[in-house]
Design a protein around this nucleic acid. Structure first.
Lengths: 205, 205
DNA sequence: TCCCTTATCTACTCATGAGTAAGGTTACGA
DNA sequence: TCGTAACCTTACTCATGAGTAGATAAGGGA
């Protein structure tokens, strides 16, 4: 009998590469199982590496999770910022921002939404997310307010909250309907918030 | 010196009363710490009772959590159903439904939203919540669709998702702004979804 | 060729918290 | 008054999983 194949050959990789692999694995596992049910062993296994590596590179579980959140929020922010150039009409800016958002979600299918919701729930990480979320909402409020006065902004804030909530919920729905393009999602949402349901006989058919 | 008061006199209570106390305590603790960080000991202590009581009355942790969700969703459903009598115009039905929702949240301040989000996140309980949530959404879609044809209903569904998401997000915002009455919240939301932001110069000031 | 730094592993420790066994105590009915 | 059933407790067991100590190997530079 052949001796049990001694070791699967350990490939040494430069730190930065391994780190990204670890984050990829962590995002996947956290999304699937949730923060608490995801064990460090699971993540290590998913990354094809042993547990102490994670501690060496990304630190304890909390840190690892925060690192995931940071990387993913940053990606989302970058995508949206890039999609909304200054100097467009509010309607267009809103449209493009929403489109970028829905496209991002569609690309990250499983990962993003779940990870995001995880983070909102646990008090430990809520700060991390609410900061990013709050920035988004303020930005959206900026798009909505016609004048740049403080008062206009204050009036727009709760509406921005509602709008962001609507976009999140709609992207949830979109995940269950893969045939729905991001563009179609934006149109649905814009129809409601820009035109309003009161026009004509509610939802047209 | 007085001998240490031997025991705080144990009050024996009938099962049904104790059960409700346990659920109250569980909702409070789950809301504050989240499902996983809430220990059965915490809950027992909050209820002023020892751990095995929980197991005797409500069963294991999962069961206890589901019992919390069931009781609280039922309460919300009851409140909303009662607030939306048949035979009103869609706009009024929508208005009253939303009002009931915001009022419920305001009354349950800490408890509801957090508990609810918990449940949405964990795969184990997601089914429990999505059923209730789906029912709500279908109901809202019914309010929105002008005709009762299947097609009209299908068109209204994603909008209902967005609307429910918006209401949830707005109630989050409302919790941070206690001076905001439920009625004011409904008005803000109705202004957006019924009239639309495109009218006039976006958000008025 | 031989270091020596960096990457990586195996094999633990130890706290926490779910769940339980077995027994004490109170109230109510006969 | 005396059971007896329902209520309630103390004091455990035991699995799980976070985090770590210490050894091993790979590969680039001298």
């Amino acid at each position: 009998m052949s001796p049990p194949s001694p070791q699967p050959p350990r490939r040494r990789l430069p730190r930065q590469v391994r780190e990204q692999q670890l984050l990829d694995a962590a995002v996947a596992v956290f999304s699937r199982h949730g923060f608490h049910l995801a064990s460090m062993d699971d993540i290590a296994e998913a990354a094809g590496v042993s547990k102490p590596m994670i501690y060496a590179y990304l630190g304890a579980k909390d840190n690892l999770f925060i690192a995931c959140i940071r990387r993913e929020t940053q990606r989302l922010m970058d995508v949206i910022s890039a999609a909304v150039p200054a100097g467009l009409a509010p309607e267009d800016r809103l449209y493009r921002g929403l489109l970028a958002f829905f496209e991002f979600i569609a690309e990250h299918r499983d990962g993003w939404i779940v990870l995001y919701r995880q983070a909102r729930v646990h008090g430990t990480f809520a700060g991390e997310i609410s900061a990013a979320r709050e920035r988004t909402i303020v930005m959206v409020a900026g798009l909505l307010a016609s004048s740049s006065s403080d008062e206009a902004h204050a009036r727009a804030l709760p509406i921005a909250h509602a709008l962001v909530g609507a976009a999140e919920a709609l992207s949830d729905w979109g995940l269950e309907h893969p045939e729905e393009t991001p563009d179609a999602l934006v149109t649905r949402l814009m129809d409601v918030i820009w035109i309003g349901l009161g026009q004509g006989s509610h939802v047209k058919h």
